[in-house]
């Protein structure tokens, strides 16, 4: 089993190695016009090492990570909470749905000018942006998940003596989990994309800000390091929620 897994993993790595090799060769042989703008992969690795050892990358990465974690957690919890109310109670759904439908299509970054004026340039601004970006998709996925739960399971729980709150926590929520996780998985990656954009536009710290500084210093290698870190983080967050979903639901789905 383990051997098969390792073998499979090796196969996945091979295209990446080939891609990095071609990159290195093209850059080293000056096959790209303007060699300065296309550093070899080895230079990027050296820069990554330097940025890590000097603490620059760690500091900026930590700033972005904390913002993402706070904004994403707060947005998810709020989305989940209001989603449960809207999914369970038809009256709440009818009352809130028109307002939410109107606000939902606005891109998270569209709020940036308004939030800059409301909160100023500070830590709250990126957290607020991520909150907005996470809140709506998780809210919609929770509502859909709850509405998709077969009514007969609710009837069954009711005849077994369960009051509404127990039905929500012990039947409806576990059965709505696959839908909720779809929202969490997609938004976890999205939160990283949004934070970078916000930091590039308005915040002086974080991976996005580091990229902007590198751009003004024409340091392509640093920009590529930041892009790689960003790619890894988006993927890791999405994979984490996919893993959690599988762990919680694979036995019964």
């Amino acid at each position: 089993m383990k051997i098969v897994k390792i073998f499979k993993l090796k196969w996945e790595i091979i295209p990446i190695i080939i891609f990095l090799g071609i990159w290195e060769i093209i850059a080293r042989l000056d096959l790209m016009p303007g060699q300065f703008f296309f550093p070899p992969f080895s230079t990027v690795v050296t820069e990554f090492w330097y940025l890590t050892v000097s603490g620059v990358l760690g500091r900026n990465f930590l700033s972005s990570l904390i913002r993402v974690l706070i904004g994403f957690s707060a947005g998810s919890i709020a989305g989940l909470f209001i989603g449960i109310i809207m999914g369970w109670n038809n009256l709440a759904n009818k009352a809130l749905n028109p307002i939410i439908s109107l606000i939902y299509p606005i891109p998270a970054l569209g709020w940036l000018p308004l939030l800059m004026l409301w909160f100023g340039i500070g830590e709250i601004l990126p957290i607020a942006i991520i909150f907005i970006c996470s809140f709506f998709p998780i809210l919609y996925n929770t509502v859909t998940g709850i509405k998709n739960v077969n009514k007969n399971y609710i009837y069954a729980a009711r005849t077994l003596g369960a009051p509404d709150i127990e039905i929500i926590t012990t039947v409806v929520m576990p059965l709505a989990l696959p839908n909720i996780f779809t929202g969490l998985r997609l938004e976890a990656g999205m939160a990283w994309r949004v934070i970078i954009a916000a930091e590039m536009v308005a915040i002086p710290t974080g991976i996005g800000a580091l990229m902007m500084k590198a751009e003004s210093l024409i340091r392509i290698d640093i920009i590529i390091v930041c892009l790689i870190v960003l790619g890894i983080m988006c993927l890791s967050f999405e994979k984490f929620f996919a893993f959690l979903e599988k762990k919680l639901t694979y036995r019964w789905r």
């Binding site: 077969n150 399971y153 009837y155 005849t159 039947v171 576990p174 059965l175 036995r251 019964w252």
Partner: peptide
């Protein structure tokens, strides 16, 4: 309400909770 009537109900579709053993 239904949860206070102390009734055992075997539904046509059985409705066993899929997430519980």
């Amino acid at each position: 309400p239904a949860n206070k009537r102390r009734i055992g109900y075997l539904f046509q579709e059985l409705n066993l909770f899929p997430h519980l053993d």
